[in-house]
Amino acid sequence: MDTATPGPLETSIREKLVQLVQPASITISNDSWQHRHHAPMRAQGGGNGETHFSVQIVSDAFKGKTTMQRHRMVFSALSEELSQGLHSLSLKTKTTDEVEGSES
């Protein structure tokens, strides 16, 4: 699937997360096409192509926080998107130290 041009939802996710945590790096991939057969997606006619995303964020704003606290931060920032069609977010949230410590 073509993911070259980010859709409006992806753009808005990126803007909000950049503002939230000032990331050293942020990678967003749109995985919606993998899930378009889902019962809830089928109910929406296959979804609008912007329902499922994977987000990898490296930011020192996550320092001293548990994974759950980090995910909650992200979810809170995107609560608007989540209530308007964003269905799933797969998150990887690391600090710069954690990335340097374990390259995988």
Binding site: T67, M68, H71, S90, L91, K92
Partner: peptide
Amino acid sequence: EFLGGCDILLG
């Protein structure tokens, strides 16, 4: 106690 979702569990 709430543990988390898929990403947290896999992690």
